[in-house]
């Protein structure tokens, strides 16, 4: 019997769903608090079907999208919450409904959940369904949440089957963080690495200047654009900043000939970390755009669950 967690539904809607799902041999629970703890304890495959009614629900759903996307099979969001609906729609295979639900839709919700369970190999099913997806995001630098944004895109890439191994998620997030931090700090904020303290006793002028420039419109008001283009064969993620650019020929390569002095240099290692998760890295001539390319694994190599 499959466990279904319903979060955020009204008593009436919960009862209706419970009734329909019980016919389909689902065990239904209503959980709001300690969702993370419950998810970590359950061993059976689960479906978390989420209903967004309040701002708190919205925050919890965003956390599920970033941290537990593999458990999210369906979602209802208010019609006017465009960005949240869009975020959910980027997760292939997740059924999206708009509130308020009508009675017939409750039946549809239950039916969709049942269909979703039958498709047990999510990676292969995503890969099968993916044709072409192009997405463009834009933030002002001072509004950008780097870690959460990188985790969001890494999740999409994992969901799209670009990586076979879930343990690669950390590497992907790290690579994206390196690329995005460089674009923000050296690009839009025009921070020079020479400001970094050469010892831990020195005042961190780099950090002070970073915070200061984020608050200034001429720096913090600049935009970061991220475009993501996914096909069956590959994913291309490009990060563009509005800074002055840099000389891309200065990017360090770590090989057998790297000197101890270069290794001891406190900066310049980001490029290597990026190349661990992506097959190719390209810069535009001006140095204001980095494109990260990942080639999809061959279909025969995809894990079957």
């Amino acid at each position: 019997m499959k466990n279904v967690i319903l979060v955020g539904f009204s008593e009436n809607d919960f009862s209706l769903l419970e009734m329909y799902l019980a016919e389909k041999q689902f065990s239904v629970r209503d959980l709001r608090e300690n969702l993370a703890e419950s998810l970590s304890k359950m061993k059976d495959p689960m479906i978390v079907f989420f209903s967004v009614q309040s701002e708190e629900d919205s925050k919890l759903l965003r956390k599920i999208i970033t941290d537990y996307p593999q458990h999210l099979y369906g979602c209802t969001v208010p019609e006017n919450n465009r960005d949240l609906g869009y975020a959910v729609s980027l997760l292939p295979g997740v059924q999206l409904f708009f509130l308020p639900l009508v009675k017939k839709e409750v039946q549809k919700v239950a039916s969709k959940l049942y269909d979703a369970v039958r498709s047990i190999n999510r990676i292969l099913s995503v890969y099968e369904g993916l044709v072409d997806q192009h997405h463009h995001f834009r933030w002002k630098t001072r509004d950008l949440q780097i870690s959460e944004t990188c985790r969001f895109f890494a999740t999409i890439l994992m969901q799209a089957g670009m990586y076979q191994d879930d343990t690669q998620m950390d590497q992907v997030v790290l690579a994206l963080e390196e690329a995005l931090i460089n674009s923000v700090e050296h690009g839009n904020l025009e921070l020079d690495s020479s400001l970094r303290p050469q010892s831990l006793f020195e005042e961190d002028r780099y950090e002070e200047e970073r915070v200061k420039r984020l608050g200034e419109e001429q720096y913090g008001g600049r935009y970061i654009d991220i475009t993501l283009n996914i096909t069956r064969e590959s994913a291309e993620l490009a990060i563009t900043n509005q800074g002055p650019g840099f000389d891309t020929s200065n990017i360090k390569i770590f090989d057998e000939d790297t000197s101890e002095e270069e290794i001891l240099d406190i900066s310049g290692k980001g490029g290597r970390l990026i190349s661990r998760a992506f097959d190719e890295t390209r810069y535009n001539r001006k140095g204001t755009k980095i494109t990260l390319i990942r080639r999809a694994p061959v279909r025969g190599d995809i894990k079957q669950s």
């Binding site: 950390d170 590497q171 997030v173 790290l174 963080e177 390196e178 931090i181 970094r196 303290p197 050469q198 010892s199 831990l200 006793f201 290794i263 001891l264 240099d265 406190i266 900066s267 310049g268 290692k269 980001g270 970390l273």
Partner: peptide, 16 residues
Amino acid sequence: TTISSGIGKLMNFYKY
């Protein structure tokens, strides 16, 4: 994992 600035901090500590 660690971001590159974390490595930088380890490098500074090593120098000390």
